[in-house]
Write a protein that binds this DNA or RNA. Structure first.
Lengths: 141, 141
DNA sequence: GTAGATGCAAACTTTTTGCAGACTG
DNA sequence: CAGTCTGCAAAAAGTTTGCATCTAC
């Protein structure tokens, strides 16, 4: 029941590792890997198994019905809450110090135990925070 | 370009309003509405338009590739961060006081501006927080 | 009356699966 | 060598669309 490190799995991991902090829809992944020797079924099967292994995270965006995946670098991601910018799409992590504060606030006020690995907080990153922009035909400020 | 309050739209809204705090996959919705007079295309078209109107929120769960929807009661949900229990699936809201604290922590430590309406925090609710359980063949404590 | 919604069936898109052959450890 | 994985093609599942008809306002 152990994973084999096949060519196709390597191709997928290489792709994601060269695009840290970005997410891709399944069809984008298929498109990006067209030039490589990998079948769609291998892509689907590996996406599932990598997600299961915690190496990829599945994401849903507002406005479309697609499935997105993002690489999870266990050394930097494991146990860290993700911050995803709804403008530029870049993902970063909540600092440890801040994570502790968030956890204690939720515990104290709502008796809720946050699961850092499962949680993605959406909003505007430092760079995008100041300017207004259009997403899904709506104006955000 | 204004929405008509059709029978089919009412059926959908009634269904969601009688299941506040729960989410459903598209196929579950179709299954639940089998007995009513509503076609699949009307379901799909209404789900999209209701999502667009902010009356429904689309959710993705770990482990499957389905699309889930949950009702957003604008009076209680608008502007409130959601808390979703990964054990029982029930959704609640972060209290206003706590929301402000969360926002300021993220701003201060990560220069990140949280979007309350887009964010769902996953973890264990008050009731489920104490006990261990199995999800997707994994043991959680 | 008219803009907008519905149902139906067909077209698409996306994802899964069975199986024989190929590859990994 | 044994257990896994792959490609292929077919099937299944999920979603969208065109069009004639119907409904809401």
């Amino acid at each position: 029941m152990r994973n084999y490190n096949t060519q196709q799995r390597k191709i997928l991991l290489d792709f994601f590792r060269s695009h840290l902090d970005e997410y891709f829809s399944t069809s984008e992944i298929i498109g990006n890997l067209k030039e490589y020797d990998i079948s769609n079924s291998a892509i689907y099967r590996n996406l599932s198994s990598l997600e299961n292994d915690g190496k990829l995270k599945r994401i849903s965006k507002n406005g479309d019905r697609k499935t997105y995946y993002q690489y999870i670098d266990s050394s930097t991601c494991k146990g860290h809450i993700h911050l995803s910018c709804i403008k530029c799409g870049i993902t970063t992590h909540v600092s440890d110090r801040a994570s502790e504060k968030l956890a204690s606030v939720l515990k104290e006020y709502n008796s809720f135990t946050i699961d850092n690995d499962e949680t993605v907080i959406y909003g505007l990153c430092k760079k995008c925070g100041g300017s207004s922009f259009v997403l899904n035909s709506k104006l955000f400020r």
